[in-house]
């Protein structure tokens, strides 16, 4: 298989002061995953899980403290040395809030023209034709109805299409989409998800789809990576992870989705919702209903539980061989 993006033990720590004490926040802890060309990978986690930090690290907005990020076999630091513009052209981003991602004073035409002018040096008729084509690609048709509109004249779903057209404009190989549908109405979400799927199959774009929603991840993605407080707890084939999760955290996520179809109330072990200290041990142990002695002593490594399905949990390990004491 052909991998386009690889993260190897990427870590990022932020620190903040609370009552005069320096407190470390582990936004990414030795995060590793590999994204195959033309695949859609979903990065799933709650707020504070570090999923947006990973988006920032991949797009080069933030620098990792340690670890390696490789795009097309070349490390990000190598890309940074003189090839940053090319990297940015290849790695684009779609943001959560389309209302905030577009300049309210710029027309659709101008917004989409920027990457075409900057990255592809288009002008005149070829520029105009390409803007037209891109609007057709994102289904903002008839094009003439949309091309000279300002953001306030468009609905949320239409704005997200403009944002997507702008992201596709530079002919990127990878698009990092950070919660692209969570601000939209449920009836509109499916269309944007379908658009992502279409861009993958027709334009050959690879996607990292960042979301808190396990259901849309399962529908859209080939693989899922589940993050909990900066740590990858489970990863693998999307269907396997989202339908038969192995990690207690992923199980909790799945159980938490409102499910009026459930015939009976599923009792849930919620554990403590507050944060705990990070002094070794499994990140989830304070909330885990199955926490064992070993979970307090060491950090479980991601291990193959089934083919195409890895989990970092001592329940699924031969604990003695897999434990990595910090």
């Amino acid at each position: 298989m052909d991998s386009i993006l690889r993260l190897g033990k990427v870590s990022k720590t932020y620190s903040r002061k609370t009552n005069g004490h320096e407190q470390k926040i582990y936004a990414a802890r030795r995060v590793s995953f590999e994204l195959q060309t033309q695949h859609i990978m979903a990065l799933v986690g709650e707020s504070g899980s570090g999923k947006s930090t990973i988006a920032k690290l991949i797009t080069g907005v933030e620098h990792a403290d340690s670890g390696v990020i490789e795009f097309e076999g070349k490390t990000l630091s190598a890309w940074r040395r003189g090839h940053l513009a090319e990297y940015r052209r290849n790695v684009q981003m779609v943001f959560q809030d389309p209302y905030a991602a577009l300049n309210p004073l710029n027309t659709v035409r101008y917004t989409i023209s920027r990457p075409l002018v900057n990255y592809r040096k288009l002008h005149g008729e070829s520029l105009h034709n390409e803007i037209q084509r891109l609007l057709e690609v994102v289904h903002l048709t008839p094009v003439n109805e949309f091309i000279d509109k300002l953001p306030f004249e468009l609905s949320g779903g239409q704005l997200q299409r403009v944002v997507t057209a702008r992201a596709v404009a530079s002919n990127p190989k990878l698009i990092v989409a950070d919660e692209p549908v969570s601000m939209l109405d449920v009836s509109i979400r499916a269309e944007i998800l379908r658009l992502i799927e279409e861009l993958r199959s027709k334009q050959g774009v690879t996607f990292l789809y960042i979301t808190h929603d396990l259901i849309s991840a399962r529908m859209l993605a080939d693989e899922i990576v589940v993050l909990y407080r900066g740590t990858v707890v489970e990863t693998g084939n999307a269907r396997a992870v989202a339908k038969n999760p192995l990690h207690p955290y992923t199980q909790l996520l799945l159980q938490s989705i409102p499910n009026p179809w459930a015939t009976e109330e599923q009792p849930m072990a919620l554990g403590i919702l507050d944060r705990t200290s990070d002094d070794g041990g499994c990140v989830f142990r304070a909330r885990c209903p199955y926490a064992m002695e070993v979970c307090h002593q060491g950090v479980p490594e991601l291990t193959n539980a089934e083919s195409d399905h890895l989990v970092a949990c001592f329940l699924h390990h031969d604990a003695t061989t897999q434990m990595a004491v910090q």
Binding site: S47, Q255, S256, P258
Partner: peptide, 9 residues
């Protein structure tokens, strides 16, 4: 978040 949502419901 979905887990907190469930808890509140």
């Amino acid at each position: 978040d979905v887990v907190v949502q469930r808890f509140i419901v």
